[in-house]
Amino acid sequence: MNFEFDADSEEMRAMVVAFAQRELVGRKDAARTAFDPGDFRRRWRLAGAQGLVGGAVPLEYGGSGLDAVTSSVVMEALGYGTEDTGFAFSVAAHLFASLMPIVEFGTEEQKREWLPALCSGERIAAHGITEPEAGSDALNLRTRAERKGDEYVLQGSKCFTTNAPVADAFVVQAATEPNGGFFGLTAFIVEAGTPGLSVGPVYDKVGLRGSPTADVHFDGCVVPARQMLGAEGSGASVFSASMKWERVCLFAIYLGAMRRILESTIEYAGERAQFGSPIGGFQAVSHRIVDMTLRLESARLLLYKAAWGLARGSQDEIAPALAKLAVSEAAVQLGLDAVQVRGGLGMVEGEAETFLRDALPSRVFSGTSEIQKNNIARALGLGNSRRPRRRR
Rank of each mutant, 00 (worst) to 15 (best):
S120N: 08
D67P: 03
L301Q: 15
E297V: 15
L303G: 11
V91N: 01
L139G: 10
Y203N: 09
V16D: 00
R144V: 01
R387V: 08
T33K: 05
Q283C: 13
E10H: 06
A125E: 09
G276I: 09
A331L: 08
D39C: 13
M100S: 10
S234G: 11
D204I: 03
P212V: 11
V285T: 09
A68W: 10
G135V: 12
V216K: 02
A31K: 03
R342L: 09
R312E: 05
E133S: 15
E109L: 09
G276F: 01
F251S: 01
G270D: 04
R272K: 15
G193C: 05
A138T: 07
S72G: 12
G181L: 02
G200I: 02
T176D: 02
H287Q: 13
R42P: 00
V91W: 14
I261Y: 05
T85W: 14
P361H: 05
Q110R: 13
K324W: 00
W308P: 00
K158P: 07
Q21Y: 11
E191Q: 07
S362I: 03
R295A: 05
G79S: 08
S9H: 08
N179C: 04
G184V: 13
T354C: 09
K111N: 13
V16I: 08
R259Y: 14
V339L: 12
E349H: 11
T82K: 03
E113Y: 07
A145L: 06
Q227F: 12
I102T: 06
E271C: 09
N140C: 04
G128Q: 04
A187L: 15
V25C: 01
N374L: 02
D316Q: 00
N140S: 07
L334Q: 02
A225R: 06
K305A: 10
A306H: 02
A175M: 04
R295Y: 01
V74M: 11
G281K: 05
F251T: 15
R42E: 15
L95S: 14
D358P: 11
A138N: 08
R147F: 03
L345K: 08
P320C: 12
L115H: 05
M1H: 04
N140V: 05
M243Y: 12
D337P: 00
P132Y: 04
D358Q: 11
E131C: 00
F89S: 03
G309S: 00
A236S: 11
G193E: 06
L24P: 07
L360I: 02
K244M: 05
D67G: 09
N140T: 05
S136N: 07
A231E: 15
G51A: 12
D36N: 00
L141Q: 08
T186P: 08
G207Q: 10
A252C: 10
F365Y: 11
R342T: 04
S298K: 13
N179L: 03
F87H: 09
G38C: 08
R123Q: 10
R390H: 14
L229T: 04
G280K: 09
L296I: 00
E109Q: 14
A359H: 01
N163S: 06
L46S: 14
G181M: 01
D39N: 02
L52Y: 13
F188H: 06
A192Y: 10
